[in-house]
Design a protein around this nucleic acid. Sequence first.
DNA 1: GATACTAATGACACTCAGTGCCGTTGTGAA
DNA 2: TTCACAACGGCACTGAGTGTCATTAGTATC
Lengths: 200, 200
Amino acid sequence: MGRAPSTTHAEISHTALLLFMDRGFDQTTVDDIAREAGIGRRTFFRYFPSKNDLPWGQFDILLDRMRAHLASLPDEMPLMDQLRESILEFNRVPETEWAYHRRRMDLLLHVPTLLAHSTLRYASWRQVVAEHVARRLELPEDDLIPQTMAWTCLGVCLAAYEQWLGDEDSTLLDLLDQAFRLIDERIDTSTVQAHRSASM
Amino acid sequence: MGRAPSTTHAEISHTALLLFMDRGFDQTTVDDIAREAGIGRRTFFRYFPSKNDLPWGQFDILLDRMRAHLASLPDEMPLMDQLRESILEFNRVPETEWAYHRRRMDLLLHVPTLLAHSTLRYASWRQVVAEHVARRLELPEDDLIPQTMAWTCLGVCLAAYEQWLGDEDSTLLDLLDQAFRLIDERIDTSTVQAHRSASM
DNA sequence: GATACTAATGACACTCAGTGCCGTTGTGAA
DNA sequence: TTCACAACGGCACTGAGTGTCATTAGTATC
């Protein structure tokens, strides 16, 4: 009971993203966002802990889903296949939102403030990966191997995202899939040779 | 010519770090630092672009040194050996400063604000690694392989740093060396088995 | 329908990081 | 001494984020 909320996280987030895309992140103040969303400035900070959190929206929910997805896969499945499949699932976005998603990720990866802030989200994401790897390999979570694999997975994803952002005609899931299949093999000279000739 | 500087980057940085370690990063204001360093608040911002930049100090210089070190190594040397050796060199710190370095890195890795801000420094560091890998493998810098290797190297370093911070008696360079030798081999079940039995 | 309870809201004042502006101060050279 | 110049520091300003508190609008009860 009590007074009904006058807005939603999604509504504020969407309003703000449009402003960011229009005039830039740094040029948009919280006052601008609150005014545009028709709420008070103080109310804004009850929905989002900071301006930096706007582009991420419901990240925790996605993380829970990924954790569950990883846990649901059979132990017989090779570890890298589990990771690749779950990460693809994590990055699946309805085709109708591809353009929006592209602009959102462009902000997150290219606005310094957001790039820095995203580290905190990536840490949670890596934790999910590291937990799974640790469980599968029966190693402690803070062991070098799970930690390094989590960093590598993050790197692969971000490298694929950069490629995606740089090529209007590419498809995110294809790039992610290719990237994971590539690093699944040992990265040595022969792999590199094959990779290079394939990309020409 | 002109008026002589009344302080140095190192002096401000050192003063600030002591305050951070004493009362915490968030509990220390720029006014506190300026007062303690005997300079005006406005002068502080002429030496450092932000409070977040204090713990990093002279990072650019270290980066240049690492770039030069990588370039000086013979092409016959295996790529992973080049990276390992340069990274060890990059992380070499005089034994007299180990305790200080430990507390400094503890701040950088465990204070959320600094953790986030460090991303921007890591990006420059990864760039150095990626450039070298790209040159050695004759691939474009933004190719997936150099980018992923750079992320992996960063992950290895940070995982080793975490281990170091967690164990008072450990030596940073030893941990880094072990970590790099470990991931140099293919991370598969047999490697993991060997690793696990060795760490018991 | 009046009343009580409750949760969301928004106004206000405050702290602190960071910036632009400008007059002041100290130094070496003419 | 004087001039030029660079570092300095004070001041006022913007904008993010927080604590406090009165107000508003729903719901349940009588």
